[in-house]
Design a binder for these strands. Structure first.
Lengths: 206, 206
DNA sequence: TTAAAACCATACCAACGGTACAGGAGATCA
DNA sequence: TGATCTCCTGTACCGTTGGTATGGTTTTAA
């Protein structure tokens, strides 16, 4: 039965847009079923309650997010052999992808979820935490490869340096949305790229 | 008539904690009046509706935020004459202040507000935008003074570099909350500090 | 003392999250 | 062909919430 999955996906699409635009607590099931074109009973057939919706929403978002990173940094690795150049290219490709979004980045569900601690149960909070830890692992792996070739020019913890990518992405999204300047996110990522270049690229005089 | 202001402040205290812990839409007026110890009528005496509460919350938060930055970077300026050293000291002082928060940073209302576009009117969105623009002006002023003495070692837009401070703060708060690691925010700020050092500090061989 | 400020009490409404239960259309399979 | 399962619709109901209204009372400052 494939049709159920499709309806479920449509509910999640509508819900994701609504949650990112007005918050989870302010998103009513009523508006979701109106916009999706189903009934309340139909909604509760797919999701036991609002909390299950949140969980499905978050896991789906995280999986899509991972696929994007796999794709971008996988391509960068194919195009560049040098780990530093590959990382810098990945950041550039990501910046391009982000600046090509027509209405700017719609927002990050991981970011919004961490502002709902008292609303969500431990399971959801843990899903969120694991997602951020996977980001850390991903970028630390790339940075470790860089460090093996290029020693960092300032003493820095590699986990913290890896987290910086996620930090700039999350912060950049907030800045872009608050300023209503879609470019800001991509630009902040490019500033991070310049920082990373400075951190690892050998000095021209060496 | 001072007592009114005090009650109003208490409502805002309770509301701020609630909004940061579960979102604006999920924060009920009912719980606010229970925790504040007033009646519903009392609440609506101070705030015409929930939107006015949001506006008051946000403006109060932004003003307190500005006072903190004035204080920290003002002290840093007193202690260090050199604009670069003063800036780096300010980042360090800010990191110390943030890591001294007992339960980690409670969250940024500016960040949450930008995830409520469809919930808030243009006025609130503009208050938010102006706040971020003031951050930009503040840090760009400091960076401009640095650039006059130390040329940047990578080509970079000064507005974007100034925004990086806010980006790392906002992103660091999200990371800290998602990971449930209070130190992460301060650590990310210190990584930014290392980046800034690399960007402006003359190379040791020069 | 007096008037404004700062509330309290009560009643009410529509909308929302959620529950419960009965049923029906359509595909799938024995 | 009949039975079963998936994927819904329809209806009815409950407690809570945001918000409005209205009238009254206590506290405070001039």
């Amino acid at each position: 039965m494939r049709k159920g999955e499709e309806t479920r996906g449509r509910i999640l699409d509508v819900a994701e847009a609504a949650v990112l635009a007005k918050g989870f607590g302010a998103t009513s099931i009523e508006e979701l079923i109106v916009e999706t074109g189903i009934t309340k009973s139909g909604f509760f057939y797919h999701f036991r309650d609002k909390n299950q919706l949140a969980k499905a929403l978050l896991t789906r978002y995280i999986e899509a997010d991972e696929r994007i990173y796999d794709d971008i940094f996988g391509r960068a690795r194919e195009l560049m052999d040098d780990p530093l150049q590959s990382f810098l290219l990945g950041l550039k490709l990501l910046a391009e992808l982000l600046s090509d979004l027509p209405n700017g980045h719609p927002g990050c569900l991981v970011a919004t979820s961490c502002y709902y601690e008292r609303l969500f149960d431990r399971e959801i909070q843990d899903i969120n935490r694991q997602a951020v830890l996977r980001w850390r692992t991903r970028f630390r792996g790339m940075i470790q490869q860089i460090v093996e070739v290029y020693p960092p020019r300032e003493p820095v913890d590699l986990d913290q340096l890896a987290d910086m990518v996620s930090t700039v992405l999350e912060g950049g999204i907030v800045m872009s949305k608050a300023l209503k300047e879609p470019d800001t996110l991509a630009n902040q990522l490019l500033v991070l790229r310049a920082f990373m270049k400075l951190m690892f690229q050998p000095s021209p005089r060496a």
